[in-house]
Each structure stands twice: as C-alpha cells, then as structure tokens.
Amino acid sequence: MTEFHIIGGEFIGDYLSKHHDVVTDIVKNTYLHHHNGNTENPDSYFLRFRDSPSDRIIALPSAIYPEETAGIKWIASFPRNVEHNLQRASAVLILNSLATGYPYACLESSLISANRTAASAVLGAYWMNRQSRTTPSIGFVGAGVIARTIGNFFVRQEWKINDIVVFDQHTDSADHLVNYLCDAGQHAYTASLSDVLACDIVIFVTTASTPYIETAFQPHQKVLNISLRDISPDVILASQNICDDIEHCLKASTSPHLAEQRSQGRDFIDGTLAGLMTGQFQVREDKPIIFSPFGLGVLDLALGKYLCQQAIATGNALTVPGFFAETSRW
C-alpha cells in the first residue's frame, strides 16, 4: 500500500534545533556523494512574474542513488515580504520513491533550506579556515533568517569568536541579529559596512541582485558568498575561489558567472568544497578565499528524507488516508 505523509514545520524546527551536528554530517556526506557522481542535480527552474521582477519561485529537482530517493524543492523568494515582517522565503519539499516514482511525503522546507544553507556555510568556513573553529572576527552583511541560522550554527558548533559584527540596511534587522547573538553568549555589535568587510570571515546574506563590493579582500580573509551577487567580478578574479558545483554556480549572473564572462575562462576557480575536503587542492596563503555555494537540491533532499524517517519513527508525521484514490491498474 502506498502511503503519503505530511511533516510540518513545528516538528522540523524542533528537531533541527537539537541536531546541528547531524545536519552538518548529512550536508558533508551529500557533497561527497555528489562529488562521486552518485546524484542527479539538474538546473534549477525559475518562475518569474511580469509585474514583480524581484519575486520568483524556484524548482530544484534532484535524486540521490544511495538514498533511493528523488524529489523536488519548490521555494518562493518574495523580498518585499520583509516590509510586512514576513519571511522572504517559503518552501515545500516533495519526496519520491525511486522504486515506483510515487511521492510519499511533503515537508515544510523553508527550515530545511535555511539549515542546509547554514550547515554548508559553516562547513565551508571550517575547511577554508584550515579545519579550525577559532577566528578573531566574523562579519555579517545582511541580517535575515539565513544570517540568524548561520550564526546559530557557529554558536552550536562551539566556534571561538572574539567579535561578531553586523551590517544591514535595515537597522532594526541588524539590531535583532545582534541581540540574538548576544543572548547566545557572543560579543556582537552593529557597525558600518566597511567594518564588517574587514573581518576575518565575511558572510554575505543579502537580496542584492547586482555587485557593489569593489574593494579586494586581504589574503587572510575567508568569504562566504551565500547570496552570490554582492561581489564584483574583479574581486572574484583577485581571490581563490571554490563552489559547491561549478556548472551550477556559473549561471544566473552570479558573481562567479560575471567573472567567467569577464575573464573568458574558468581558471580562477580552484574546485569545489568536496574537492577541498578530499585534498584535491589546498587553501592558498597569498590570496583571500571565497566560497560560492549555489545551493544544491540534493542537500534539501538528503536532509528531508532523514527528517521524514525521524518523523515517521516518532509519530510526528501525518499520514493522509486515501491520498492516492487508485494505485492498481485494474
């Protein structure tokens, strides 16, 4: 009998808040599966709207063979939501069986997306920082949900940080993030954009659509280019660069994509985070290093399947009777 389950955000949020190391391990292992060719992760598909060009809904289909699961994340990004104190992003994840193709679960996925993004960012910071969880300063450019989740991962993974510096054009958002981090025991404060850009680890989590960072970073700095479009091509070209997937990252007018167009080549990219983790190249001493993760659907899929299993095992999945009216041919 084919069953269909719904897993809501209340269970997902509670579980994720207690299992940061599990999430990071899932993200790390999924990157390695992808690196080894054990996934399908085609291009994302963008639905845009004629009267609201900043809004979009994105479909990210994917499959992981070791997990025997396929699926699709359907995530909306409506930046103007923040003007009404609504979160910018909302999402669902559908899981499908590789044996029959039948969908078997629907999960609230904005929390999954935020947590896999944060785990990816902090994993990248760890490897760019030569597998050390100590840094003098971290700077956030942008202070929304993703910034808060990344900050939480740094805290939960017990990074030793002297200062966390925050800049956001919306000063109330910056204040909220600072208060959140201070409540978590960190020394955090708001500052100018230039002060944030001087930090040892700089994290871009904005809704910028075109580059505005024109000043090169210093060789000791590590940059998490999460929002992908803040940094000018010249700054990218003056840095060591890694991606989660090169083909995916060099699309859609991301900063690395613009750098490819400027340089007419891809020599400025050393490889992927999985390549760094497996020793295919090393962090250089003479250049800053930038990690640009496009955001792979396989990460949502792997984390979503794990959460589905946990929800079913603990009685926190809603099984929908009769969701499939018919499954037999005759």
Results as ranks from 00 to 15, higher is better:
Val92Asp: 07
Val92Ser: 08
Val92Asn: 12
Val92Glu: 04
Val92Met: 14
Leu93Gly: 09
Leu93Ser: 04
Leu93Lys: 11
Leu93Tyr: 14
Leu93Gln: 12
Ile94Ala: 08
Ile94Trp: 05
Ile94Tyr: 04
Ile94Leu: 13
Ile94Phe: 10
Ile94Pro: 01
Ile94Asn: 05
Leu95Gly: 02
Leu95Asp: 02
Leu95Asn: 04
Leu95Val: 03
Asn96Thr: 08
Ser97Thr: 04
Ser97Gln: 11
Ser97Gly: 06
Ser97Met: 08
Ser97Asp: 06
Leu98Trp: 05
Leu98Ser: 09
Leu98Val: 07
Leu98His: 03
Ala99Gly: 06
Ala99Arg: 15
Ala99Gln: 15
Ala99Asp: 15
Ala99His: 15
Ala99Phe: 13
Thr100His: 06
Thr100Leu: 07
Thr100Met: 08
Gly101Cys: 06
Gly101Glu: 13
Gly101Ala: 13
Gly101Thr: 05
Tyr102Phe: 14
Tyr102Ser: 10
Tyr102Thr: 12
Tyr102Met: 13
Pro103Asn: 08
Pro103Ala: 11
Pro103Leu: 03
Pro103Cys: 04
Pro103His: 09
Pro103Tyr: 10
Pro103Gln: 10
Tyr104Ser: 03
Tyr104Val: 02
Tyr104Leu: 03
Ala105Asp: 07
Ala105Pro: 08
Ala105His: 10
Cys106Ala: 15
Cys106Arg: 14
Cys106Gly: 04
Cys106Lys: 15
Leu107Met: 11
Leu107Cys: 11
Leu107Ile: 03
Leu107Glu: 05
Leu107Arg: 12
Leu107Asn: 09
Leu107His: 07
Glu108Asn: 15
Glu108Gln: 15
Glu108Ala: 15
Glu108Arg: 13
Glu108Thr: 11
Glu108Gly: 13
Ser109Phe: 11
Ser109Trp: 07
Ser109Lys: 10
Ser109Asn: 15
Ser109Leu: 12
Ser109Asp: 13
Ser110Arg: 13
Ser110Glu: 14
Ser110Tyr: 12
Ser110Pro: 00
Ser110Phe: 10
Ser110Ile: 06
Leu111Cys: 03
Leu111Met: 14
Leu111Thr: 13
Leu111Gln: 14
Leu111His: 11
Ile112Phe: 09
Ile112Ala: 12
Ile112Val: 13
Ile112Gln: 13
Ile112Gly: 08
Ile112Thr: 11
Ser113Gly: 12
Ser113Met: 10
Ser113Thr: 14
Ser113Val: 08
Ser113Lys: 02
Ala114Thr: 06
Ala114Met: 05
Ala114Asp: 10
Ala114Tyr: 07
Asn115Val: 03
Asn115Tyr: 06
Asn115Leu: 01
Asn115Ile: 01
Asn115Thr: 03
Asn115Arg: 10
Asn115Trp: 05
Asn115Asp: 14
Arg116Ser: 09
Arg116Lys: 15
Arg116Cys: 09
Arg116Ile: 04
Arg116Glu: 08
Thr117Lys: 08
Thr117Val: 09
Thr117His: 05
Thr117Glu: 04
Thr117Gly: 12
Ala118Gly: 02
Ala118His: 01
Ala118Ser: 11
Ala119Cys: 01
Ala119Lys: 01
Ala119Gln: 02
Ser120Asn: 14
Ser120Lys: 09
Ser120Ala: 09
Ser120Val: 03
Ser120Thr: 15
Ser120Pro: 00
Ala121Met: 05
Ala121Asn: 09
Ala121Asp: 04
Ala121Arg: 10
Ala121Val: 07
Val122Phe: 00
Val122Arg: 00
Val122Ser: 00
Val122Pro: 00
Val122Leu: 00
Val122Thr: 01
Leu123Pro: 00
Leu123Val: 00
Leu123Ser: 00
Leu123Trp: 02
Leu123Phe: 00
